[in-house]
Design a protein around this nucleic acid. Structure first.
Lengths: 212, 212
DNA sequence: GTCTATAGTCCGATAGAC
DNA sequence: GTCTATCGGACTATAGAC
């Protein structure tokens, strides 16, 4: 009896985990396409051939689901900062940073787009601990860049501004994906074109700030 | 009698023009803050101390109002290309181009933000003539930049990519206005900070591409 | 032209049967 | 856990008095 109860509980847990993952994955796509307000639970449910009541069963409110998605994406950036921190010289660190941000923009535009929707609306849905982790990560990044300035590896520049420039350049390719498509003969950028973007971006940025 | 009728018609026309202008101006602000779907007629009406039925009197549907706003903003970019074209050297042209794009981002963020909302939504509302004028302007710009490459004024770079980088850097400051505010101690950038952004951006870009 | 009231629709969330 | 049915609220749009 006890064993059967336990097996039942385990099975239910597995079902729960599986469904939560499916829902989060579908939600990530819909939220990135439409933004928080325009996205609907119904659409997410349809994508999964599931009654929308089931979504509410796993995530009581729309905001709960949204925050779960945001939290998951937040971790995506954490690594880059750490990777950048471990590189000793500015040149290598910048090269890797730009590369990984562009990779996210090209390969997984959902992440940048959801973030962009959120920021466009004034970051209304961000909890204070998300804001704090944002600021904390930012502080690490600016301190690192400032050290490059202090050791004469890069030109004198406001570290925060350099970060804005890097973010602006790289996120542009996910936010403005559709405009780029229009200007590119109604085709998304090819693999070769993406490589050229990466080369041109790194060249301009390194030439722009690195002191040889 | 005829005269009075005419005066009446003129007066009504003046009232109509005045109200349409007021509504467009308020709508521009609300649409840029919230995007098409999240913005409500009610909020635009409240901003003008006006019943929302009046908005519908002047603009039958929400989309009519939105398209009117988009059309108006489209003209904002036309000038910059022309100004850039008249400058003989790459250095001066780039300096002015970056300056004017940043000015729009800082002084009138509505324009870039509405454009960005539209692109994020997949450019659903763009008519084909808007797309064509986009491509046409773009062709002029890339041709100009290519001529700088050919005459050895700037390094070898895909002109389209350079434009994406310039747009990414400059529009970031309107799209991500709220994130920047959070990272800046909950204050929008001061006049001095904006000047530093301008200097840092121009320095990095010119150093990055100009051949002295 | 201006206003109040409301029709019609869509969405988030819940109740309750299975 | 899964599903159907529905409530309550918000929004676009319209009807109709002034």
């Amino acid at each position: 009896m006890a064993k059967q109860t336990k097996n039942n509980a385990e099975r239910k847990q597995r079902v729960r985990n599986r469904n939560e993952k499916k829902i989060i994955s579908a939600a990530e796509k819909i939220f990135s396409e439409k933004g928080y307000n325009t996205a609907t639970i119904q659409e997410i449910a349809d994508k999964l051939n599931m009654p929308k009541a089931n979504i509410h069963y796993y995530f009581p409110t729309k905001k709960d689901l949204y925050l779960t998605v945001i939290m998951k994406l937040r971790d995506l950036w954490k690594n880059e900062v750490d990777v950048m921190m471990t590189k000793s010289d500015a040149k290598t660190a910048l090269r890797i940073y730009v590369r990984s941000l562009l990779d996210i923009s090209f390969e997984n535009p959902h992440a940048h787009k959801i973030w962009n929707w959120e920021m466009m609306r004034g970051a209304r849905n961000l909890t204070s601990d998300i804001r704090e982790s944002m600021k904390k990560r930012n502080k690490k990044e600016t301190a690192l860049i400032q050290s490059w300035v202090d050791t004469g590896q890069i030109v004198s520049i406001e570290p925060q501004n350099l970060l804005y420039f890097l973010w602006g350049i790289t996120t542009h390719f996910s936010h403005q994906r559709d405009q780029i498509k229009i200007l590119n003969g109604n085709k998304h950028l090819s693999k070769e074109q993406r490589e050229k973007v990466y080369d041109d971006a790194v060249n301009m940025i390194l030439r722009g700030v690195i002191i040889e």
